[in-house]
Simulated assay, not measured.
Amino acid sequence: MSSRILPMYEPRLHTYNVYAALFSIIAKDESYLPWFYSNFISIGINTCDDTLYFTDHFTFFEYGEGLTSCPWLEVYKPPHKTIYSQYSFNIKDAVTSYLNQNKYIWLYLDQFYIPQSAHYQKMHKEHSVLVYGYDDGASVFYIADNLDNGKFITTEISCRQLIKAWESDICEHFRRLFRVLNSKQGEYTLSTAHLRDQIEGYLSSKPMNQGIYWDQIPVDGPHAYVQNIQYWIFGHEVYSYIQRLIKQVKVMNGPKVLDVRIPHLLWEHKKCMIERIHYLNLGMHDLVSEYEKVVNHSLTIRNLTIKYNITKNDRILDEIDTRISEVVHTEDIVLRKLAELL
């Protein structure tokens, strides 16, 4: 009997499992921080599904030819023929073979077969999962995903459950996104000019139409729309779009609910920014105290969103809208000062 459990480190971001998985793999020490603080600055919302991301979201390991924007990560994309002919009905051997080489696996599983999922034995729903270990003796695999009410956790599932979750018909089109991930020693030099351009682009809502993600040929299948730039809104214009979504919820008939992931990512965005200011040793310019207001407002917006989904009190929507306007106003002032100092 054999086993292998790969290291998992505390992730810096949690809103989506793609962020948490990335940092769980690379955050062994702080050597990656220059890269981290040089990126994760702009945000974008896809108007097809109203999902908010850092604009770095799809540049790690899922799309294109397996390239990655992270210097601390190696990505291998097996050929489609290999995935569909060799892995489709032999996933256990494929995964354990990669794990024995100290490589993580990113693949899509049907949450109907994952006991920790809210969809377990209720609804078939595909979702990406990081596999970081196995134990033949216990007949289990170790996985990580946002399974605890959206919180990223590590857990285990039986070998039989993983096989069923992988072979489920609902995952057919997503098997092509099978990736092999390997941590490596990276190198990155922080550029203040790059930082300034990123911040100014965020404030001016500049479209992110270049880079490792946008320059690649769009994937086919159910995720193709995410690489069509006409469906995206970027930077500070995102907030106006979110306010329109809130107004739509207020007037709609039937079940009313706000997507908590949107304010949660905005809060993480603000936390990253204030960490960035500290990292650049610019706290003495009164930027921190001013930007803390933005962080606190963003946390309040996140908490009010949760409260609204419970109470359905429309007055909470008005308060969220007001606080979003305050975030935009204050952040614009502080980040313009920051850009001038860079």
Rank of each mutant, 00 (worst) to 15 (best):
L52P: 02
K81I: 13
F60R: 04
K271N: 12
S325Q: 14
T300F: 09
Q216V: 12
S183Q: 05
P71G: 10
F141Q: 05
H264W: 05
E74M: 05
K125F: 13
C70Q: 04
Y291P: 10
T192G: 02
Y108N: 09
L177V: 01
S2N: 14
L203C: 10
V257K: 13
S325N: 09
Q101W: 03
P34G: 08
F174N: 13
Q185E: 14
L258H: 03
L147C: 01
A339H: 07
D169R: 14
F36I: 09
L67Y: 09
E290L: 09
Q227D: 04
I212S: 11
Y84F: 14
N149H: 10
Q198A: 13
I246E: 03
Q216N: 10
L22G: 00
W267I: 01
N281G: 08
A94D: 01
G235E: 06
E10N: 12
L195T: 06
T192C: 05
Y202L: 07
P71T: 12
D215P: 06
D169P: 02
M284D: 14
H285N: 09
I333L: 07
E10A: 12
E200W: 00
L287I: 11
S168P: 04
E65C: 11
Y120M: 05
D136R: 13
N39M: 05
V260Q: 06
F60Y: 14
Q101D: 10
Y202M: 12
H264I: 05
T154H: 04
I320Y: 00
T154D: 01
E292T: 13
V328L: 05
E275T: 02
C48Y: 11
H14L: 13
L287Y: 10
I5V: 15
L335I: 06
H223Y: 13
R302E: 15
I153N: 03
N309D: 12
D286K: 14
S168C: 08
Y63T: 10
N253K: 15
P222G: 08
T15P: 03
N90I: 00
S117E: 01
V257P: 00
T192E: 09
Q111N: 12
K164P: 01
E326G: 01
H14N: 13
P11R: 11
N209I: 08
N228D: 15
Y308H: 03
